[in-house]
Design a protein around this nucleic acid. Structure first.
Lengths: 263, 263
DNA sequence: ACGCTTAAGTGAACACCGTTAGCAAACACT
DNA sequence: AGTGTTTGCTAACGGTGTTCACTTAAGCGT
């Protein structure tokens, strides 16, 4: 870089050379097409050959950008977690910073919203990994999932600080559960407040229930008998909030529903 | 059948001709091998060609028995629901008929037990259907799933008859939820007791939560941070039972754990 | 017991899939 | 201009679901 850039580039595009830029663009295109195929034909419909065909090139050429189909699926899964994290964070940020209750409602409803509008994505993110080789390296997706979870961790942290959440006492939790909760708290790196065993238990319990309703809705397990699962989600949300000592905020009282980055 | 059977056959094998019998045996063999491949290599590892290869025949020959891979997968899914239903029913029956509390504990623990010992099966039964054509006819599996659910419906029915379960009042449920609950109750054909809106809500809420914990465990979503999910399951079970006004029975007090038909 | 009907199974073919190896062209940089 | 790297291609191997035409075998009625 002896010559200064003459072209009117606002940012020097980091330190990426032109080559690296087009390379990155190609990778983005690959992932974008893969994502579309995922949405349109399900995870089974994502294939390197089809992607290459649509890009006007051949399948082996894609191996210059992606080590294989599994890695590509992991990569787009990570992207989707990132997107979901953004959506949830945006919903969280759309509420007044002090109104922790509303922020929590907002974030959880944004999660459900995104899930039901992105069933194919949600399935590969939160369903069983049926397509990937069990020995595939899924760490990129895990990393992104961590960032997604952190929004909720932060909210729970605030909640524990502000309110007097009724937590189960350490004595009544049981040694095995305590051990698992400690392991969990250590691995995900919970903050001091959530580090309490009772708080960690409360957190996982809430997550399990949210996960349950949303999975049930997206995977269509009551689809044959139920048209709209929203009332069930809201019922669960209400029950959850009540158990947390937080007042439940119905949808009507929330103003315009929050729309995330994609919706 | 002019000649009486000389061979020592206890039963006349229904009205099936010899031809139909070997045909049925072949179909059973196909499904059995498919099931094994499912367990050993995941749902993606089930293929007609591999099954045929193992049976010493060619793939097109299988089309005399099964209309395609999708129908085969649906068929074994139905079988698996049948098996799970048997397992749960056996656990239920292993408790004293009058002890509804214990029967419920037993049945739910049997469900989890079967799920974690049969993750591949559980994934195709309760996870998103990623492999099947969305237009595939899954009614056989649905029918079997209904029979699986009926065990729990019966238990809830008993519970509602015996105890004074604290049910949410009709007024506080909300019109949309009421409508969905009615639709649900009608479709699955709940008995008179569970027909009450509050009871149906309680039932679905419980099911959602059980579904949530078990899915979370089988799909390994906390697997990176938690070794054993049993304490979480038991915590959820306890919380659930308490909410139902039923006393929670810890595992230790239950005697030898119940083993189902497979496991 | 013989002939006819029907079912079972095969081989070839088509259209897909992931992946590897070897090669030619384009590009960046000295 | 020459050199080395990057990119993309073709060919090929082994795998998949599925259809079609065909042969073989079994069962059934007379």
């Amino acid at each position: 870089m002896t010559k200064p850039p003459v072209t009117s580039e606002p940012r020097p595009e980091a330190v990426l050379s032109r080559r690296d830029r087009v390379r990155e663009a190609t990778l983005t295109e690959i992932k974008s097409i893969a994502r579309r195929h995922l949405v349109e034909h399900g995870v089974a419909g994502v294939s390197l050959r089809a992607i290459a065909r649509e890009m006007g090139m051949t399948a082996p050429g894609l191996y210059r950008y992606v080590p294989g189909i599994d890695a590509l699926l992991v990569a787009i899964t990570a992207d989707m977690f990132e997107e979901l994290a953004d959506t949830v964070a945006a919903a969280d940020a759309s509420a007044p910073p002090q109104d922790t209750d509303l922020r929590l409602h907002s974030a959880l409803r944004a999660l459900r919203s995104w899930a039901i509008t992105h069933p194919a994505e949600f399935s590969v993110m939160f369903g069983p990994s049926t397509r990937l080789d069990p020995e595939a390296d899924i760490s990129p997706a895990l990393e992104a999932a961590r960032r997604f979870a952190s929004t909720f961790f932060a909210l729970c942290d605030r909640l524990l600080q502000e309110k007097d959440i009724p937590l189960p006492a350490d004595e009544e939790i049981g040694p095995e559960l305590t051990a698992e909760l400690r392991s969990f708290a250590d691995t995900v790196g919970l903050s001091a407040h959530v580090m309490q065993t009772g708080a960690a238990l409360m957190l996982t319990r809430c997550w399990i229930r949210i996960y349950g309703v949303v999975c049930m809705e997206v995977f269509q397990h009551l689809g044959f008998a139920v048209n709209d699962m929203e009332p069930f989600f809201e019922a669960e949300l209400q029950n959850l909030m009540t158990g947390l000592g937080v007042r439940y905020l119905p949808v009507e009282h929330m103003g315009r529903p929050v729309t995330g980055t994609a919706g």
